[in-house]
Design a protein around this nucleic acid. Structure first.
Lengths: 175, 175
DNA sequence: GTCGAAAATTTCGATGTCGAAATATTAACC
DNA sequence: GGTTAATATTTCGACATCGAAATTTTCGAC
């Protein structure tokens, strides 16, 4: 039997398709399949890393969104929901648990009382300041297989893709 | 107020980080953040598209894995589980529902009776043959924002990344 | 000013996934 | 050849997410 040609998991999949259905152009799968596969692998690696600090990826996500908004580290529930790309129901649940851990506060917006404002507590600030450096080091490690040029290219092409998919800068609630 | 500089959602995030913590090098986020964001958006778009045909993405995934294995379109449960990157428990559940829909059969491997073999039924074959073409057209559409060169570059860089993350061609269970 | 539509969050019920334990089968070892 | 370890799948309990309905507040029309 011939040696398996080198490549990743997606190469094998494309090869299978060409055997079975040589009439199909599977090139879109070669891109989208890799994107979703890479994302899944990275998700796992991040989860594993955060576990060392007793934190779930979604916790880091919420804390980081609050932190990078700058003092007073306050963001509305709705903005957190779109930033994390999860439903408002999911976000309510996340905030419940972060409040229990005393990492965030939840209070009604004084001027627009249907909005709920979430803020980092002091403990929350300390937590994210500690976590973010480890997180960046970990992400750096995970990208270690790419040359600097490749990273830049990847970044640029993904930006183009995101824009074409309708991704937009988050507009900080006006009013 | 200055006009918002152009870019995607991640550009805005990186800018926020530089405001709050100019001492940090956030460049890894510019890559990994975009990867996970793009993957999430694509997932949604695929789900929406499949919904037109009354199908969930995971159903397509399982059927496609079976189909591209070639006649007799039979794969073990374990292989399906690793191909889909979900737990064996999740896969048992998926197969249950596909069996209910008469799209796949489940039978014990005669020679290794602890293995379970999943096969496409005739209806399953017809379903995937119909779906795959629409799916490829849809993926092509979703990638429409990238120039052919960019697609090739993206593909190549993601392959490099996947390999460095430990992704491997699936070894078809040796006996 | 009041009524109804729009907006923001929470609640609720359903569902899909995970990890761990249970079950069944095969392989290995002495 | 019988006990033990390894392999493959299913079952079980817990949990996070989603979409839709409910709740509360704000805005606009008249």
């Amino acid at each position: 039997m011939a040696a398996t040609p080198p490549g990743d998991g997606v190469d094998a999949i494309i090869r299978q398709w060409q055997e079975v259905r040589p009439d199909l152009d599977c090139s879109p799968m070669a891109v989208i399949g890799r994107l979703s596969r890479a994302s899944r692998l990275l998700e796992r690696a991040l989860k594993e890393h955060f576990a060392q600090y007793g934190v779930e990826p979604w916790e880091f996500d919420v804390l980081a969104t609050l932190y990078r908004s700058g003092p007073p580290y306050t963001v509305s529930a709705g903005e957190l929901s779109t930033a994390a790309m999860v439903s408002s129901a999911a976000l309510t649940n996340r905030i419940d648990r972060l409040v229990d851990k005393d990492l965030v506060d939840r209070e009604l917006d004084a001027t627009h009382r249907r909005r709920v404002l979430i803020s980092l507590t002091d403990a929350g600030i300390r937590a994210i300041e500690d976590l973010v450096e480890h997180h960046l080091a970990n992400e750096e490690r995970l990208l270690g297989g790419l040359a600097p040029t490749e990273r830049k290219q990847l970044e640029r092409i993904l930006r183009t893709l995101l824009i074409s998919l309708g991704d937009q800068p988050q507009t900080p609630t006006k009013d």
